[in-house]
Design a protein around this nucleic acid. Structure first.
Lengths: 345, 345
DNA sequence: CGTGCGCACGAGAGCGCTCTCACCATGCTG
DNA sequence: CAGCATGGTGAGAGCGCTCTCGTGCGCACG
């Protein structure tokens, strides 16, 4: 735990290079309009002194921070006890880094914490925010919009339907669900059930919608509600078997739910996929590949989602647009999904 | 994507409250030495104007940022495709938040990226750093030490043996391994094998040491090297069965490895735990509970590790110490592990 | 009643940077 | 050859805050 040494200032570099502060500043920020001789001289001085600009001083005048907040709400941190979180973060990080932006991570801890996040964002410490808050009743999005911080959401916010200015990046949950169910139908299955996710999240609702798109005449008996967890999957599967013992296919809202379903199916003596075909969602790798049998599932490109969120945000901040007004204002993006065939369906 | 509005300054608050800037500053920073009447008046003005201090301006003069960098090296981000990362981060976040510090996340992408991180840390943007870099040959720790930023490491760095000033937080990998092996021995097992983790990481090396502590006379035939992945676990288990078909217990370096081992054992017709007892490490919940049979494993309190890292760092920054010099300089901490008995051993 | 002390407050100087603007060479046009 | 763009450079103001000092006041003391 060493202590920081005093760092050289612009002034020091200017003195050493025999130019003015202004010129050094110009060189440090690209060097346009400075003769090559001087640029060279300043660069040398910078190297020799090990000069690094003081970001605080810079922000004070530019009102830019080159920093973006990533807000993850508490309920999500549980969901993110899977690679989802890490991957998305990685995509975000890559994109931000490529544009020299820092990533300030804000994890909320319970609802009281929302105020703190709101205050922080309103405090103008960051240029924008990437927010994961997929619950319908979450006050956070509203709070953030009010804070006046440019924001891109991860996953469609529940209330976004009526607001045109909300920008989000999402997977094509509905389309992916349709693909899954169509695949099951293509296998000749006719009694295709669906185990939902937590329906207060748009992803779960959208997947259910996709299922219904294909199974227009599915009775409610074939739909069981769960919560994205293996335990929930078990419960729902048992329920389904009771209501409809001759079910021959299950589309689970995510891979973890599918794991629970698989376990119950096996315990009931049914073979997968011979008796009951099973499809998950996410392609959560350590899980989907390890199940018995390996899980057919709908893959979403999670890292790309993160990257895209960051890209949209930065574009909105005019970091990217070469000329003012050239880039259209960013609008939401829905990424395609792909069905990954393994052995469970 | 709304745009930020101009924010009120100290000056504005001062004018409204009819006091000087200095007084407002005093109130905002605790209010010592200001008459209650004025404190009240200033507070009111702050509320009415929705004043939030400009952190950049403040940092410029205080040279404090109330921000801490969390550095995660690339190889780790893969390992952290498990709840490890999220949990640790959560612990860190909680502790930092409690002390009004921000969390700046730095994920490195390949070795070239180290320089960037070094530059950032040397740039004095943050008051300290929490670093995850558990590989023996990683240049990052050295780089960071040279940057002169107070740092606490997550996991014992490979080269820390000879350096007294390195502060880290780690689990008692060695002790946990000993417990696991002793438990297996206590079950009457005599041919207890060990599947190692990636031995360029101290955690893997320490667990191997713990195994050896108990199995002082274990032949090399009972040790197979793997890499913390299920696939590695499978490979190693096959190897072990070949070399020692009558093995009756396996201590795997982590839960994922154990999953691979379980699969091979089952495929070979052996029953767990009847024929072969298996113990993992981590208690990675979605995994350990879902295996067949549920996995006996060594649990480490991951969130607490994160919290502790942050606490040590902040203490080192004198955020905590009520009086100068009262708190001893922070030293490394090794957290205990606990054996969680399920059904595999 | 004068002196001294302590306390509450304000004035003002920076922190390190960016950015506007004025200045001074040039080089070109009329 | 005067006049005027043009482009490179420096001087200086100011971003919003903290913090040191100096000032004025009330009070206890001699």
């Amino acid at each position: 735990m060493t202590d920081t040494a005093p760092r050289p200032t612009l002034e020091a570099v200017a003195a050493r290079a025999g130019v003015s502060r202004a010129t050094v500043s110009r060189v440090v920020n690209g060097g346009d309009g400075v003769r090559d001789v001087l640029v060279e001289r300043v660069r040398k001085a910078v190297d020799e002194l090990g000069y690094v600009p003081n970001q605080a001083a810079r922000s004070l005048v530019t009102r830019r921070h080159d920093a973006v907040a990533v807000v993850v709400a508490e309920p999500e941190t549980r969901v993110f006890a899977d690679p989802f979180f890490a991957l998305q973060l990685r995509g975000i990080s890559k994109e931000l880094t490529a544009h020299d932006n820092q990533l300030v991570l804000l994890l909320t801890e319970g609802r009281d914490d929302h105020a703190r996040v709101g205050r922080y964002l309103a405090g103008g410490h960051v240029d924008g925010a990437l927010v994961f808050s997929l619950h319908l009743d979450d006050p956070l999005p509203e709070l953030i919009q009010r804070a006046g911080v440019p924001t891109v959401f991860g996953g469609r916010p529940g209330w976004s339907g009526d607001r045109r200015d909300v920008v989000y990046v999402d997977s094509d949950n509905r389309g992916g669900a349709r693909d899954a169910v169509r695949h099951l139908a293509g296998l000749g299955r006719t009694r295709i059930a669906h185990i939902t996710g937590a329906l207060d999240q748009t992803s779960a609702a959208d997947r259910l919608d996709g299922y219904r798109d294909v199974m227009v005449d599915a009775g409610p008996g074939l739909i069981a509600e769960a919560d994205f967890t293996p335990a929930g999957g078990e419960r729902a599967m048992r329920e389904l078997l009771e209501r409809c013992p001759d079910v021959d296919a299950v589309f689970a809202a995510n891979d973890l739910t599918a794991v629970g379903a698989l376990r119950v199916l096996r315990a009931s003596g049914r073979r997968v996929p011979d008796d009951v075909a099973v499809i998950g969602f996410d392609d959560m790798l350590p899980v989907a590949e390890q199940t018995d049998p390996p899980l057919t599932t709908v893959r979403q490109d999670i890292e790309e989602m993160g990257r895209l969120m960051a890209r949209l945000l930065l574009r909105g901040l005019d970091r990217d647009a070469p000329r003012e007004g050239v880039g259209a204002p960013p609008s939401s993006v829905v990424l395609p999904t792909t069905l990954v065939r393994r052995e469970s369906a």
